[in-house]
Nucleic acid binder design. Structure first.
Length: 650
DNA sequence: CTTAGGG
DNA sequence: CCCTAAG
């Protein structure tokens, strides 16, 4: 009882009546046993809108044309074959002109809402397994052809004129598909307008040279026969490591190439199709590329074995994500829906990450990560190499040795996570659309009058100004840098623009507190924050309060669990993933790094050494004031937070 | 004016 | 961050 997959045969560039470059689909239903049955009306209707959507998404009217260009681009690129010099390539490059190529199958299918592209090509075309597979596909092609003929001869009404075209066209072009054992190269491209439509088409202008090639008749036929794979990889989301791992799984060898683009292309081309995917335009967005490496169809060999053992897993943490996806045992369509709606799909096997050891499963690519402020990152990294190192060296008198060690671990953990955030920024930066800092919507209560609204532009200006100032300050001495030329708009009712506290400021505050004592805010302000005119003494006080809360919550909730979290739990998760992958006999697993590390903090983490210091100071003042009172204060706030602030009025 | 604390 | 009461 297998899934029924709707498949579409792609026929691009049909006869003149079709707009040039338009893509036509032939719907075929694949039964569990692999037989192909022309789709019924209902089935077509069910899928049709997707095809329509696809076309709509193309920047029409040139959209479809462009996709066609895109096809050509890819086909032609084999001539150029610029990139692959660095890696070993199939010995016989595609010869476009002489129409000699290795058969390559490009498969497009729609399953539910998602377009799934299956690329199956081979360079080792002589291999028995692939030959078997080839034959299998050919048989199926024959079957479909037969069905088509039957259907046509019976002149069954076909709901959409489109399909009519296809049918004719298909039978036309079909003759040289399987029998000749060679498939027009262009079919490779034909695939992509579907799968790789969207931005990629626009983002990468296509040369006129390629445009010319468009005019040539392009035959294409994309074919497929697979039920939906559970192993889906959105190449865009993969890190270089993951891509490399994917590469390894597919090609059975390591690669040291660090060029994401190149890796994606290679992967997408599956078993190294001689036909080069152009580096331009190969960005898969919004759709998925399915890399299939379990067994396929009947009599088809299992290609890849399950190779997930701990060692590769450790090396390629990220590659476990996909497995997790399977682990969810969520219907794939559901996952896809989630993805489509942009939600992050997360499943916790255990309850809460911070409370119990849990396996937090995240599907990458659904939600973009909001990275910390640029300034924060800058300063953080700067600090981590300076002040914090020094602080880490200084022994901390604290609430006990146990506590101290925990804190240290905690420190390394949070360092890691912050690092993580930074790198994350790096590799997400290219794909994700981040809201520029300056454009972020202001928080807090609504503006009180129109004047402020009109000052919005001014505010942005101000932000930019201060941003540049900050950069200047970051490089220079931190005391001198902040001249604070922030021109505050005349409107006094306006709420102060939110300025995130930089680690530098925090350190300064902590220093001030340790020097002058908590509560001497005006003093601290005057002596330590003289140059930070945008930080009032009240701000200092508020920040200190927040710092206290921060280190308190961390202390209570994670004191015991922390160690487990940072190291042991990591290994446990890996082990679990390993077991899972083995039990599912999956060959490929991708998991977000986040899954294996601790949960990403909601806001920029406060560096552990600082928290440590805050804690120390807090305990000092606590001791002075009397423990009961002070801790009650914090606890009270905490409890309130837990209950929700709304209960406050009760 | 400064602090503390709620919002 | 804002607001405000209490020193």
């Amino acid at each position: 009882m297998k899934d029924v997959v709707y498949e579409s045969r792609l026929c691009s560039n049909p006869p003149q009546e079709q707009a040039p470059g338009s893509v036509v689909y032939q719907l075929v239903r694949v039964e569990g046993d692999g037989t192909l049955i022309p789709a019924t009306d209902d089935e077509v209707v069910e899928v049709e809108h997707i095809l329509e959507d696809d076309k709509k998404d193309l920047p029409s009217p040139e959209g479809s044309g462009k996709s066609q260009l895109y096809v050509s681009d890819m086909a032609l690129s084999s001539k150029k074959s610029s990139i692959d010099s660095q890696e070993d390539l199939p010995s016989d490059p595609l010869k476009l002109d002489s129409q000699i190529y290795d058969p390559t199958w490009y498969i497009v299918s729609w399953h539910s809402l998602s377009c799934i592209i299956l690329l199956w090509s081979n360079s080792e075309g002589s291999s028995g397994k692939l030959n078997a597979r080839r034959e299998y596909i050919e048989v199926m092609l024959q079957k479909v052809k037969h069905e088509e003929k039957l259907r046509l001869s019976r002149e069954e009404p076909i709901h959409s004129p489109k399909c009519n075209n296809i049918n004719r066209q298909y039978s036309d072009q079909h003759s040289y598909l399987p029998a000749s054992n060679s498939i027009p190269t262009q079919e490779a491209g034909a695939l992509f307008p579907v799968g790789l439509r969207e931005r990629s088409v626009e983002e990468y202008p296509i040369s006129t040279e390629i445009e010319g090639a468009l005019t040539t008749d392009i035959h294409s036929s994309s074919y497929l026969d697979f039920p939906l794979s559970e192993h889906e990889v959105c190449l865009d989301d993969l890190t270089i490591r993951e891509l490399q791992e994917t590469f390894r799984v597919i090609f059975g060898r390591q690669t040291s190439v660090k060029d994401k683009l190149w890796l994606r292309r290679r992967i997408a081309m599956g078993l190294s199709n001689p036909c080069d995917i152009p580096s331009t335009g190969f960005i898969i967005k919004g759709r998925k590329i399915v890399i299939r490496n379990s067994k396929i169809g009947h009599g088809c060999a299992e290609s890849t074995k399950n190779e997930v053992d701990l060692q590769p897993a450790l090396q390629n943490i990220g590659s476990v994500k996909d497995e997790i996806q399977g682990l969810l045992s969520t219907p794939i369509s559901q996952i896809q829906e989630e993805r489509l709606s942009g939600k992050r799909l997360r499943t916790s096997l255990l309850e809460n990450n911070s409370k119990s050891g849990s396996l937090n499963v995240e599907i990458i690519g659904s939600k973009r990560v909001r990275r910390p402020t640029k300034r924060y990152i800058e300063e953080l990294s700067e600090l981590e190499t300076r002040d914090f190192c020094a602080q880490l060296m200084t022994p901390v008198k604290s609430l006990g040795g146990d506590q101290t060690s925990a804190s240290y671990r905690c420190g390394s953990a949070s360092n890691v996570s912050s690092q993580c955030a930074i790198t994350r920024k790096d590799f997400l930066g290219g794909c994700g659309v981040q809201i520029p800092y300056v454009l972020r919507v202001r928080r807090g209560r609504p503006r009180t009058n129109i004047v402020t609204l009109m000052n919005a532009a001014l505010v942005q200006e101000e932000k930019t100004v201060s941003e540049t100032q900050r950069k200047g300050a970051a490089s220079g001495d931190y005391l001198g840098g902040y001249a604070d030329i922030v021109l505050r708009p005349k409107c006094s009712t306006r709420r102060k623009h939110h300025r995130a506290w930089t680690p530098r400021e925090v350190v300064k505050l902590v220093e001030g507190v340790s020097k002058y004592g908590a509560g001497k805010w005006s003093e601290i302000k005057r002596l330590a924050f003289a140059s930070y005119t945008y930080r009032s003494s009240v701000d200092l006080k508020d920040k200190w309060r927040n710092l206290l809360r921060a280190c308190f919550t961390q202390r209570t909730t994670e004191k015991g669990v922390r160690i487990l979290h940072s190291s042991l739990l990591f290994l446990l998760r890996l082990l679990l993933l390993f077991i899972i992958s083995v039990s599912r006999n999956s060959s490929y697993v991708v998991v977000s790094t986040q899954t294996l590390t601790s949960r990403r903090p909601t806001s920029a983490p406060i560096p552990a050494p600082i928290l440590l210091r805050v804690r120390e100071l807090a305990s000092r003042t606590q001791f002075q004031e009397g423990i009961g009172f002070s801790s009650a204060k914090i606890t009270g706030r905490n409890r309130r937070d837990a209950q929700g602030k709304r209960s406050g009025f009760l």
